[in-house]
């Protein structure tokens, strides 16, 4: 499997749209095209193998299930994970006889995860590059705003950042998928499947999704009992064989109970405070109130 110039250019274009300060906008760009699962579909369509694209995208998606960028600090770049990592992983899997024989197997998934996470991590430099170049457009924007040239703000916000993205998204993606595919395939194919480097690759690929889950847990777990909620969901899927739609349905039911309970608690609190106020005032009225 090789990538031609048009395919590489298309991948470069999607990288421009999908990145964190991306030109597709936040909702369509970063949160849709920048999710590896969706990118798997897009890359699959571009490279002509949707099934493999989705398989690879899904594997990488677990690592990036909760990509939060609080205050603009990033540990991973979605454009690199999605539009460099997914194509490279697809090429590597297709060009490796053992992996290509079983693309739905865990070895292929682990290879995809390891490659995607590597690209995503190294790609953080692209994020900082883009936002640094954008500073130049913003400096021009301040001058225009001072002069009352308000319409040029559109240029600053929506047009000039394309230059940042051609430098930091299009060119790196184009070059890496156009040239890098062979290099990655050659390295992988030169190593026997049961060698230590390959075993390490498969093992780290299977371990990396834990980081994605843990990033999310860091956010939602605020007290020790929250672990029970997590273990409950884990047990539903691991032991009771529920799929995620079933898990969601059960989770919604428990959320309803939680909601009702906290609503009652709030009501009780307000009754208690107003009750206390009434006791201080008039005892008869308090009884009526109850």
């Amino acid at each position: 499997m090789t990538v031609n110039i048009i395919q590489a250019a298309l991948l470069g274009l999607f990288a421009c749209l999908a990145s964190m300060p991306g030109l597709g906008g936040t909702s369509i760009g970063n949160y849709t095209l920048g999710r590896p699962l969706v990118a798997g579909l897009v890359v699959g369509l571009i490279l002509g193998n949707v099934t493999l694209g989705i398989i690879v995208g899904t594997a990488i998606q677990v690592v990036y299930i909760a990509l939060v960028t609080p205050g603009g600090t990033v540990s991973a770049d979605v454009r690199a994970a999605c539009y460099i990592g997914i194509p490279l992983a697809m090429i590597a899997i297709m060009n490796n006889p053992a992996l290509a024989a079983d693309p739905t197997g865990s070895e292929a998934a682990a290879t995809a995860t390891a490659l995607g996470a590597t690209c995503g991590t190294l790609g953080a430099i692209l994020f900082y590059g883009t936002s640094t170049i954008n500073l130049a457009w913003q400096a021009m924007g301040w001058k225009w705003l001072e002069k009352g040239d308000t319409h040029k703000l559109y240029l600053v916000d929506m047009v000039l950042p394309w230059i940042s993205h051609i430098i930091c998204s299009f060119i790196p993606t184009f070059l890496l998928v156009y040239i890098g595919g062979d290099a990655v395939s050659n390295v992988l194919n030169s190593l026997p499947m049961d060698s230590i480097p390959m075993k390490t690759l498969f093992a780290v690929g299977s371990l990396l999704p834990c980081v994605g889950i843990a990033i999310l847990l860091k956010q939602v777990i605020t007290k020790a009992t929250d672990w029970l909620t997590f273990f409950f969901g884990f047990t539903l899927a691991a032991v009771m064989g529920c799929n995620l739609i079933a898990c969601s349905a059960i989770a919604c039911f428990f959320a309803l109970i939680t909601f009702e309970l906290s609503t009652i608690k709030t009501k009780l609190d307000s009754v208690r405070t107003s009750g206390a106020a009434l006791t201080a005032g008039d005892d008869d009225e308090e009884e009526e109130d109850i």
Binding site: D226, F230, G233
Partner: peptide, 17 residues
């Protein structure tokens, strides 16, 4: 709560070590 529970399911379904 829904999020925490579902992420438990995601972990059990999609992490295989």
């Amino acid at each position: 709560t829904v999020g925490t529970m579902v992420i438990g399911g995601v972990a059990a379904t999609w992490v295989s070590i």
